[in-house]
Nucleic acid binder design. Structure first.
Length: 583
DNA sequence: GCCGTTTTCGGCCCGACTGTTTTCAGTCG
């Protein structure tokens, strides 16, 4: 059982307990534990083997015992009992907008239905109005909620959310009186997937903003429209909400809306330590006589986030770090990393040309890369066994090498081209070309595209075998995941990273917003182990090259600096590294 | 259920918005 399965189990428990009406803090504890497992970076089973489960944040005695039971038996008596009490199917109702645990519980208890289909029929038949606290509007809201569920498939990839949010922001900035507009929430923290789009606007007068926002093109429904907050749904089911704050409190508002929740809990605590209560509006002096957070004569307003952090005695923390993964402590100790930036990237070590499945010739790709400030690129056209991509035979490679020589002459020192290959790690763990041939390439990037559903041991061994091949320099998109649809291979990532740290092989952060693989958590673990990271676009076209932005976002979330990423090194240093690897 | 340079007990997330309400409960972020 891996971390995600454990986390899913605890999330289910939290949902069922909530419907049951258990005290909210108990359900929060299960959710916190689930989140913590997802961000752990190592398998919980390792903590388990060492008897250190309770060292995982948010895991105490009770949850540690449950993890122990799950890992030893694959089952959980507590959950089985709970499911008998509260039908598991009800948990899926919670995904319906406008339905929360209270109403789910109430509807189930009064009408005795458990399936989403029955809920829909009941709503259509008008059986929900008349239930306590529900009227015709609630019924319609539930029906619309069920309909929107089928339209939207959960969270959307960052690569879709980000441009969409930017276009909304551009339109809001045109509204008269708008001083600033910024993304917030997981979008601003650059998580790989985003639920709803959160946008924050600074303006004295909110009415014009709300008017513009609810009248954006392609808005299919206005879900709510108030003085400070409005939310909308687009035709494709994507939802966005906007908050408007006066400019003088934009800093606290943006900090608050950016989250994460856990980061903000710590921020509020730091404020309290200084006798201040922090809200999205301002800091207020805590009244010492009552101990309550109100009744202050003097409010502190912050127009910028820098002021917010300064007020609690911290340097500004980049949004990508705000996950309560040690950033507050690092900021306190003045040990925040100087995060990598887009401009630091000087090399792109995975891209494809018309030699395999790319859309442009090598010359066109090289020129497009140079235009974007790249000094070194590697053509990693696919290897022979990946037939659908037009993979190259060794004979093809000879011809490709000759063409590279020719265009290199044409390009001069504008950009350096490396002759490389994305070599398939085959199902048996062998590579697609013999060692002698691999040794002749400038760079070898090995990755998996097939048989990703092999059992954990087998697929893990496969990658480790590639890592131990002395000719392999980079492992490309290690898990093979596709966002949001396909989970990656069931890898023992700790074992893989240990092997990589022994051999010095670099691990890729594939910058395609549909991959972002390694993810932030494992990339951070890789850094801890001293493994070099390579951020590559995997570009098949010119537009793909601009996706490197998302790769940098993952790297920033992983606390990486430019020294950790081989693509930021000088050409000399990069070539020296390759040479030391036998190239 | 977790957690503790105040604490092993008593805090934890609170405010805007909506709908069904005559003063409030539930949802959501």
């Amino acid at each position: 059982m891996n971390n995600k399965q454990l986390a899913d189990t605890f999330t289910l428990i939290a949902n069922l307990l909530e419907i049951k009406g258990e005290i909210i803090y108990k359900t929060l504890a299960y959710r916190k534990a689930a989140e913590s497992l997802m961000g752990l970076g190592r398998d919980a089973s390792e903590f388990w083997k060492e008897g250190k489960l309770e060292e995982i944040p948010g895991v105490g005695k009770a949850i540690a015992e449950k993890i122990d039971e799950l890992l030893s038996t694959g089952k959980l008596e507590f959950l089985e009992k709970l499911k008998k009490e509260i039908p598991e199917e009800l948990a899926s109702w919670l995904a319906v907008p406008s339905l929360g645990p209270k109403k789910v519980g109430m509807i189930w208890k009064t009408l005795g239905i458990t399936s989403l289909a029955d809920l829909e029929s009941a709503a259509k038949a008008g059986k929900l109005r008349g239930l306590p606290g529900m009227g015709a509007k609630s019924e319609t809201a539930i029906l619309e909620g069920i309909a929107s569920l089928s339209r939207r498939s959960g969270r959307m990839p960052l690569g879709r959310a980000y441009p969409l949010a930017q276009s909304i922001i551009a339109q809001l900035k045109k509204v008269k009186g708008v001083v600033a507009a910024e993304p917030a929430g997981s979008l601003r923290r650059m998580r790989s997937t985003v639920g709803d789009l959160d946008i924050l606007v600074a303006a004295k007068d909110s009415a014009a903003v709300m008017e513009a926002f609810t009248n954006l093109p392609n808005v299919s429904r206005v879900l709510g429209k108030g003085e400070f907050k409005s939310s909308i749904e687009f035709g494709d089911g994507v939802r966005a909400q906007v908050w408007v704050h006066p400019p003088q409190e934009f800093g606290t508002a943006l900090q608050y809306a950016t989250g994460s929740k856990d980061h903000n809990v710590k921020m509020r605590q730091l404020a309290l330590d200084k006798g201040l209560s922090l809200s999205d509006h301002s800091f207020k002096k805590v009244n010492p006589s009552t101990g309550s957070g109100r009744a202050a004569e003097k409010e502190i307003f912050c127009a910028t986030e820098e002021d917010v952090y300064k007020t609690v005695g911290l340097p500004w923390i980049p949004p990508e770090l705000r996950e309560d993964r040690g950033e507050i402590e690092a900021a306190k100790a003045n040990k925040l990393p100087k995060l990598i930036e887009l401009k630091d990237l000087k090399a792109d070590l995975q891209m494809h040309s018309t030699w395999s499945d790319g859309k442009l010739s090598m010359l066109e790709m090289a020129r497009a890369s140079a235009k974007r400030g790249m000094k070194v690129i590697a053509f990693t056209d696919h290897s022979a066994s990946l037939g659908v991509t037009g993979g190259l035979t060794m004979e093809d490679h000879k011809k490709q090498a000759a063409e590279i020589k020719k265009i290199q002459k044409e390009l001069g020192d504008e950009i350096l081209i490396l002759h490389a290959s994305e070599v398939e790690i085959k199902a048996d763990g062998s590579l697609d070309y013999p060692d002698e041939f691999l040794a002749s390439l400038d760079l070898v990037l090995a990755s998996m595209h097939t048989s990703l559903r092999q059992p954990r041991d087998k697929v893990t061994d496969r990658v480790i075998k590639a890592i131990r091949n002395p000719h392999v320099d980079i492992i490309g998109h290690p898990t093979g995941r596709l966002i949001p649809d396909r989970e990656g291979a069931d890898l023992d990532m700790e074992a893989i990273l240990q092997a990589a740290s022994e051999t010095g092989v670099a691990m890729e952060i594939n910058a395609s917003p549909y991959r972002l693989d390694l993810d932030d958590v494992y990339a951070r673990r890789a850094k801890e182990l001293g493994i070099p990271i390579s951020i590559n676009t995997d570009a098949h076209s010119e537009e793909d090259m601009d996706m490197r932005f998302y790769g940098v976002a993952v790297a920033r979330r992983a606390w990486l600096t430019k020294n950790d990423v081989i693509n930021c090194w000088s050409t000399d240093k990069l070539l020296r590294w390759l040479k030391n690897r036998g190239k």
